[in-house]
Design a protein around this nucleic acid. Sequence first.
DNA 1: GACTACCTACCGAACGGTCGGTAGGTAACG
DNA 2: CGTTACCTACCGACCGTTCGGTAGGTAGTC
Lengths: 194, 194
Amino acid sequence: MNSWTSSEKLRSILQQAARLIYLTGFDGTSMQDIADACSMTKAGLYHHIATKEAMLLAIMHYGMDLFEERVLQPVKDISDPLARLKATLANNVQLVTHDSTKEVTIILHEHSTLTGDAKHEINARKKQYVQFLERTIEEAIAKGQIRKVDATLAAFSFLGSVLWTYKWYRSDGALSPQQLADGIGDLYFHGLMP
Amino acid sequence: MNSWTSSEKLRSILQQAARLIYLTGFDGTSMQDIADACSMTKAGLYHHIATKEAMLLAIMHYGMDLFEERVLQPVKDISDPLARLKATLANNVQLVTHDSTKEVTIILHEHSTLTGDAKHEINARKKQYVQFLERTIEEAIAKGQIRKVDATLAAFSFLGSVLWTYKWYRSDGALSPQQLADGIGDLYFHGLMP
DNA sequence: GACTACCTACCGAACGGTCGGTAGGTAACG
DNA sequence: CGTTACCTACCGACCGTTCGGTAGGTAGTC
């Protein structure tokens, strides 16, 4: 009954760490804090992870896994580009507003905390998403479904509207995640003009 | 020749500090680093400022001053709400993409570094901007210039598109600040649909 | 079934270093 | 003589990380 216990333990450590880092930032969270949250000592923690930065990297990779599973995976087989773009937007808003995905918020906020190879690893995965958006937008333009716009600009504008929500959206506020997704989608696709 | 030297010195300290914090973050910048950049000792630094956090607060207030001077001041007397909104967007993009306004970027990135009263002070000034946007949007709706949308949502969508640029825009890239402002404005007001 | 060998999971204690901040002195200026 | 603008020297707290050691379990050998 032990071969699985190890990785289960690691997962629960990463989860506790993600919770604290989400609340107080990476630099604002000490290894002691994380150890306390796990009811362990600092030294015990280091049996499971190599360094603090490696831990952040693991959390971010997990966040990207979550993102790809919940946002990209469900839409990748939608053949109609406009429908694909709309579904992506809805899924992404849902992901960011869903409280439990602290790991995703951490990726957004600590976007320059990692260094060296670790930074490259995560940036590469982010870039794939941007390129997915650009390709989808260009497909939709080619099909005449949307206006002829700069695909890169449209992709970053998409990301701005969608991801900025993590800075202001509170789940105990007036808007439900569904309303938010609908509203942002409406604004992004139809603009303000009548 | 000294009554002005004092405040001039303080300004140059804050400027150096802003440069370093912009590059390596608030927690990643030590008082020693700032002192070095000012060709002083740490103790010398503390002759001019009370605490590290007070320094961050001063930098953020300066950033808000800059913002209000360059974005809000020039548009506040435009009576036509749609024209006012468009001008605000253009000015705000220009401000964020302009390299020299590190203080503004710091406000955006270190949005939960301050604590207590200091946090409230800055948040109050930010909130004023959101409310200015909401009011302008509602005015434009009342005049029938734009569609009937949720003003709060439209304001945050505006901010998302505009402010997210600080995470990806590089002034040595393909787009000029002017092109960026035009592109974001076009997308925000007209959307993607034909 | 006792013994040896080895494992994982952890702990207490300490490491070198850095942090924000300060006490007290000094030199220049008015 | 008082004020301003610094300096040298230092403090206590905390940082991420490491080390020696160990409880408890597993697997193989005689």
